[in-house]
């Protein structure tokens, strides 16, 4: 028996919004410690890694490890039927071929149940090596989304350049060039407004606008985003998911011919 109950069901709705444009289907690996999902996008350019710890759920039971292959378009349709303040429970029998979503209104007066067929997905799990990153940049997630959106007008790539002074995002194309510099902030009233750069060595890497913009669909999950970069390795874009876990996107850099 697997059962995971989340009073803050809106988090699960936001997680779905954060992955559904990138992935058509994915396996949810449910274990005693929580739920893990790892999947590449169709073009194998990026990797999504989702971690939801059991401690973050209001009730969590997983008697045996189960892998639930889900069509994310279908799952998204179902989660759209949940209100933002609904309590969401996911449950499945051991070796079942369906998963059930239960949505309870806060006053328990409305209870909806949706059963979805599971899929057999033959997905390779990739090993993500432990990496010491040269630059770790924390910035407001809304600011990052805005920068990615604004620079997308100029070209297909965004250059992210991190030095001890701060971080620079730039793009170039037919209409001209764009440069946005963010300096490390001094003291801020709210921690989530801070721009913090932890740099060992300066790094400049180029990434696809299209993918960065898809990652920013996770913006509603967290007021801050963390970018980790080292030369010639994938960028990590991480959003915390409340107290429950995180979503990380890995994106291979673009390289000059």
């Amino acid at each position: 028996m697997f059962e995971a109950r989340l009073v803050q069901g809106s988090l699960l709705k936001k997680v779905m919004e954060a992955i559904k444009d990138l992935l058509n289907e994915a396996s949810f690996d449910c274990a005693h410690s929580g739920i893990l999902l790892q999947a590449m996008d169709n073009s194998h350019v990026s990797l999504v890694s989702l971690n939801l710890r059991k401690e973050g759920f209001d009730k969590y039971r997983c008697d045996r490890n189960i892998v639930m292959g889900m069509n994310l378009t279908s799952m998204s349709k179902i989660l759209k039927c949940a209100s933002n303040d609904d309590i969401i429970t996911m449950k499945a029998q051991d070796s079942a071929d369906t998963v059930t979503f239960v949505f309870e209104s806060p006053n328990q007066e409305k209870v909806s149940e949706y059963e979805m067929k599971l899929m057999n997905l033959d997905q390779d799990q990739l090993g993500i090596p432990e990496t010491e990153y040269c630059c770790i940049i924390k910035l407001p997630s809304g600011e990052f989304a805005r920068i990615c959106r604004d620079l997308s007008q100029f070209g297909e790539s965004i250059v992210i350049s991190c030095t001890k002074e701060g971080v620079k995002f730039s793009a170039a194309g037919d209409i001209g060039t764009a440069n946005i510099k963010l300096a490390q902030t001094g003291t801020v009233d709210k921690e989530e407004d801070a721009v913090i750069v932890d740099m060992q060595e300066p790094v400049t890497l180029t990434f696809s606008c299209k993918y960065l913009n898809m990652f920013t669909k996770a913006t509603p999950l967290s007021p801050q985003v963390c970018l980790s970069m080292s030369p010639d390795v994938p960028l990590v874009v991480e959003y915390k998911i409340g107290e429950i876990g995180h979503i990380r996107y890995y994106l291979a850099p673009r390289i000059g011919d």
Binding site: D124, L126, G127, S157, Y250, I255
Partner: peptide
């Protein structure tokens, strides 16, 4: 001209 590397050239199947 930039080319895009696949994520699988960095991360290998377990």
């Amino acid at each position: 001209i930039m080319s895009q590397k696949s994520i699988t050239s960095f991360f290998k199947p377990n």
